[in-house]
C-alpha cells in the first residue's frame, strides 16, 4: 500500500488552494485507510496548512526571477506515515529565515514556523537545481 501521488501545478498563486485542498483530501484518505477515525481533522488540517505555506513560499521565491516554473507536489503514503515533497526549479530558497520576533507581531514570516510546528520532520534542501521541502507526519 505504498502509494505515490504526484501533482504538477503552474507556479501561480491562484493554484494555492488547489494544492492545499489536494493535500487535505489526500490526508483524509490516508487517515481513513488507516482507520484513524473520521474525527481526525487535525491531521488533514496540518497538511492543508503546511502545503499551503510551502506552495506560497515556492511561488513567492519564483516571482523574484522572471518567469515562474512549475511546482511539483508528491505525496507518499506509507503504513502510518504520510510524506509530502514540494519541488520547484526557482531561485534558491534560504531555510535560514529567522523565526519571527513574536514580541513585535510582524505581518510576515509565520509560514515556516507553522510548518515546523505542524509536521514531525521538515527538511529543506537544494537538489539537482531544485528547491525541495519534504515534510512528514506520522499518525
Amino acid at each position: 500500500m505504498n502509494s505515490v501521488i504526484t501533482l504538477t501545478l503552474p507556479g501561480d498563486i491562484r493554484f494555492t488552494r488547489l494544492a492545499s485542498q489536494t493535500a487535505s483530501n489526500t490526508a483524509s484518505l490516508f487517515t481513513d485507510t488507516c482507520n484513524a477515525g473520521a474525527g481526525n481533522w487535525e491531521f488533514s488540517h496540518a497538511f492543508e496548512l503546511a502545503v499551503s505555506e510551502a506552495f506560497t513560499n515556492a511561488v513567492n521565491y519564483g516571482d523574484r526571477m522572471q518567469g515562474t516554473r512549475d511546482i511539483t507536489i508528491t505525496f507518499t503514503i506509507e503504513q502510518r506515515k504520510l510524506t509530502v515533497a514540494i519541488r520547484d526549479a526557482n531561485a534558491p530558497f534560504s531555510a535560514e529565515t529567522p523565526e519571527p520576533d513574536i514580541e513585535t507581531y510582524p505581518e510576515r514570516g509565520y509560514g515556516l514556523m507553522l510548518i515546523r510546528t505542524l509536521m514531525d520532520t521538515v527538511t529543506i534542501c537544494r537538489e539537482n537545481g531544485e528547491n525541495v521541502i519534504t515534510m512528514t507526519k506520522q499518525l
Partner: peptide, 16 residues
C-alpha cells in the same frame, strides 16, 4: 474554513 499565514499576516497588519 481555512486561514494560512498570508491571511493571518493581513489581519495582523490591519490590526496594527
Amino acid at each position: 474554513d481555512f486561514l494560512d499565514s498570508s491571511g493571518l499576516g493581513a489581519i495582523i497588519g490591519a490590526a496594527h
